[in-house]
Design a protein around this nucleic acid. Sequence first.
DNA 1: GCCCAGGACCTAT
DNA 2: ATAGGTCATGGG
Length: 322
Amino acid sequence: MTTHAQPHKSDKYIRVDGTNFSINQISASGQCFRMTEQEDGSFQVIANGRRLRLKQEQPSYQTPSPYQAQSPSQNQPQTSGDELSTSKEFQKNSVILMDCSEEDFQTIWKSYFDLDTDYSRFLTSIDPDDTYLRSAVAYGHGIRILRQDLWEMIISFIISQQNNIRRIRKCIETICTHYGTKIDPTNDTDTCSDSFYLFPTPEQLATATEEEFRALGLGYRSRYLVETARSIVSGEVSLDALRQMDYPSARAELLKLCGVGAKVADCICLFGLHHLEAFPIDTHIRQVLTAHYPDGFPFDSYAGYEGVLQQYIFYYDLNSGH
DNA sequence: GCCCAGGACCTAT
DNA sequence: ATAGGTCATGGG
């Protein structure tokens, strides 16, 4: 029973314009943890109560053999050398293939991937004299801020603290398989219909004890998870209320949760509530700010989408080696 | 063995 | 208010 290896039938896929949209970059940008690259170079993401398979068609001159097994040097930038000119070519020619219906794309995934937002206006708004920011933005031009589930972001970024991305993914997958709903795809002629697990609901996660979490390797964050699940299930903090709040109110409300400090609250606001003005400052960002912006980062120049720039910077600092 | 990873909590001042 | 110590786990 082969689970992968065969190229998917192209008639199952819908085609989507990939302007300023790189699955590779989004997957490696540290904002989502359940988007994974497959052996054949395609990706899958589990979100919105289902699994989506997708892949990106590169311009033919860059990838001569599309189905050749690519070396899993996962964070290879699509642009080589200095980016500004080549990235434009890449944007124009890129197409995303998604294995969903046109209706699911319109009602679910279009919003999830934030395809209604024009990211070119972010890219072109950068101060020409800010060479660092220009390089960062050019390097990560395919990044978008996904519209992910609020509850999943709360738990994911509590786990993220003082942790590395590989282990964050592992921890999240562990709690999904232990507490989330198992989905067995009803076989629809696809060879890739292995089962998967949804992210656990607050009620599902609240059944766990701190000892169970510790036994699963979640470490000192186990208490935070128990306390936070309890706070949400009890209604002490309301997810629906959070969704109605503006950024300052939501941030203040999130700080009531155990294990949520300033940085994690900003990540939740940015990735779970799509408050693009949230600017999470972690160890990487802090180092960049002190090294490249000794007189302060020009927040006022980018009011309303500071968080988008933060994500370009984070990805650039994490993956470019600069 | 040490240091770091998308930090936050607890306690003492 | 703010500074320092502590917290699990895994990989380099």
